[in-house]
Each structure stands twice: as structure tokens, then as C-alpha cells.
Amino acid sequence: MPSDLSVRAPALPVLRLPGLDALARLLRQVGPAALLFLTILVVWEGVTRAGFVSPLILPAPSDVAATFVAAAPRLFTHLGWTSMAALGGFVLGNTMGFALAVVFVHLRLGRLTALPLAMMAQAVPIVAVAPALLLWLGNGVEPKLFIASFLVFFPMLVNAMRGLSSADDQVAELLHTLSADWKQRLLMVRLPAALPFVFNALRLSACGCFVASVVAEWVASTTGLGYVIVFASSQYRMTEVWCAVLLCTAASLCVYGLVCLAERLAMPWRRERPATA
């Protein structure tokens, strides 16, 4: 997984009830980023139009847009395949990571036996193993799903385990003096305490699952944006490559935004809190 995944994506506009006040706040929040983005686009367009750079190396944004319009139906079909693998992996990997974290937090034996194995599995360069995976699972959607969930699984496992045991000793003592059983402790303390950690993992994997899916398609596939990128670049159709890249970026940003929205809805007690939260 590329290391730049840990960099936070630009803040998305926050959903609020319609109103002028909200609009102004929204502009203040996203205005600077949007301005920078537009400037980059304009400079890019200018540089390529003026002929400083060969269109093979860097096509003009307007050309990319034209290709996008022309190839839209085909691109979106491929996006569908990529998203299916990415989102399937997102759900599968995160669910498994979280479920295993709950087990590990409660069972010392499980932690001792399976956690080192999970650690080791994380160290496997999954992209390098991809050819073997394709041999085992075929070149359909399955290996992509596997790779995406594999990459998503570990951050969730580690974060959820930390989150589930993040409530301090005093809370544990309180629940102890109240004679709470482990189920009550899980529901009343561990799960709510884990939420911020879980959402950290989800935000990381929102982009990670698309990367995983595209890389898997890259290795061997006849569908998906990864395939489009490899195939189009082999024919030097750079505008199409850029279309696929931008489409993939937009899709992972959408998922990221949805995760952020879910985070706000799931933790109302953090919403009114000052900036430190």
C-alpha cells in the first residue's frame, strides 16, 4: 500500500441544513482548496495548450474531458467492476478485522496464537503474490476482492483492538463494581470507546480499497479501471489513462466522504466538542 494513504484527503463539504449562513461557512471551508485546484487546472491547460509539453506526456485537461464524455458509458462500466471489488473488499475486510479484534480482545489464547500470524500476513507483499492468487482464484472478481479485503483487514484489526481496550482503568473499575458481565462491558463501554479508532481505520481503507482493486486488475484482468489504465497506456491513449485515474480518485473520495458523514452521525457526542476532538 503506498505510504501516502495516510495523508488526509481534502476536507469534504459538510452536509448542513440549507441556509445562507451555512453556505458562507461552506465557502470559507472549501474555498481555498477549490481555488488552488482551479489554479492548477488553468496552469495545466495553459502549459499543454502552449505546447511546452507533449500531449503524450501530459494531455490537456480539456482533451481529457472530451475523451471522458466520449467514453463515459464504457468507463463507468469499468468503474462498476472496480467499485464492486473495492467496496466488497472494504466491507469484507473491515468486518473480519473488526470481528477478529473483538475476539482477540476477549481471548488471550486467540491473541497469542492468531495475532502473530495476522502480523506476518500483513508483511506479505500482496502485490507480489498477486500472480499466484490469480492462479488460485482465476482472473474474475474474486482475487481482486481478496486483495482489497486483505489490505483493508489489518488496519481495522489493529485500530479496533486498540479502540476496544481504550477505555481507562477507572471505567473498568466502575463496571466491575457494578458487576457488569462481559457482554454489557462490550456494548456499553468497549464498542462506543472503539468508534473513533474504527472510523480512523475506515477512512484509511476508503482509499486503500480502490488502490488494491486497481492494482489487482493491473496484474491480470479484462475489466475494471486498472485494466483500462494498462490497456490504454500500452496504446499511448493517455487521455483515457487520465480519465480512469480521475474517475478512480473521485470514487474513492466519495467513499471517504460517506465514511466521514457516517462518523459524524455515529458519534454525536463528538460533534459539539471543540477542535481537539
Binding site: 471505567v171 473499575e173 463494581t177 457494578l178 458487576s179 454489557q184 456499553m188 463501554v189 462506543p192
Partner: peptide
């Protein structure tokens, strides 16, 4: 018995009423 310690040990995700109800909820 009930134990009250120096730190109030309220659960940050529960509103005050829900925090007060915690003991009875566990019971």
C-alpha cells in the same frame, strides 16, 4: 455498595441522564 471516585468517570458518549442510568441498566 456504590463507589464514587475522585474522577467522576462518566462515559463521554452518554448524556448525563444516560450516565446516571448506567448502574440500573447494568442491573
Amino acid at each position: 455498595f456504590a463507589l464514587v471516585s475522585q474522577q467522576s468517570v462518566l462515559l463521554p458518549w452518554r448524556r448525563m441522564l444516560e450516565n446516571v442510568e448506567l448502574g440500573l441498566e447494568v442491573a
